[in-house]
Design a protein around this nucleic acid. Structure first.
Lengths: 141, 141
DNA sequence: TTGCGTGCAAAGGTTTTGCATGGCA
DNA sequence: TGCCATGCAAAACCTTTGCACGCAA
């Protein structure tokens, strides 16, 4: 994985800075664009997409798309934590992101690799569904 | 789940017929449209989307959105099989989409539900990684 | 007859691309 | 200086919506 590539520009720095400061949540192009505009350092949409593409390719950022309508979500990958090793759950109702540290799940990768010849990348993989809070709230309907 | 609803029209019959005949794979609006056109019974795009929406709502068809670019995929839900429960693997290198029918993975949902109180929705969840073909190709680099 | 279904075209939203200019190294 | 990055606008895509007409029940 390349740690970095290309020139360092003001736009790129601002973009990465925003992603790092929001590493605990998913964000999207619209949000990034609005933030940078409010910051007084507007960045063109095309540039955001282009930079994001590179960051994803370099393994610096994760890209998720679970709904063509909403647009893709992005998240900075934090090396210092062990987020790369475990899976994540994302609640489709409240948007909460849950880190899943579990032995059962750790065995999952090995199983898929051995039995299906597929090397799963946990840093790119998110389980979508409904969390317990939203699930119990749903029962009341 | 409602088994059916609304009027029976030629368009609706053709659409469902196509979905049933292709229940083993994912399809998309473009493919459906092209097929119906070739069949000599063209159906407007809007109609396809509208019917598909109803079918999804009635639980007759499953909708997947892997990738904002490619557009959504649809698949008829065959009650007789256990296809309802399986996950998908998507190769980040070649883009191949692999259907994962496996008992081990079926137990995964239950595990996460019981131990983590989270109801995973397989129709929204995709494992990203590298498939065996691309993996062996990588070794040669 | 009633009201849902259909087709067409236009609109809506996200993402990509072409091209000239700007800026890093 | 050479080449990549940026911005703007236009284009490309997928999907939804408005409206008039058609058709099932």
């Amino acid at each position: 994985m390349k740690r970095d590539s290309g020139y360092n520009t003001r736009q790129k720095e601002k973009l990465i800075s925003f992603l790092v400061n929001n590493k605990e949540k998913h964000t999207n192009v619209q949000e990034i664009s609005a933030y940078l505009l409010a910051e007084g350092t507007p960045v063109g949409t095309a540039t955001i997409y282009r930079q994001l593409d590179k960051l994803v390719e370099n393994g610096v950022v994760r890209k998720y798309s679970f709904d063509g309508k909403t647009g893709a979500c992005y998240q900075y990958i934090d090396d210092s934590r062990e987020c790369r090793e475990h899976f994540h759950l994302k609640c489709l109702k409240c948007g909460k992101l849950i880190h899943l540290n579990c032995d059962h799940l750790s065995g999952l990768r090995e199983h898929i690799l051995e039995h299906h010849g597929f090397m799963v990348d946990p840093s790119q993989t998110v389980f979508y569904g409904v969390c317990s809070d939203c699930s119990s709230a749903e029962d009341k309907d």
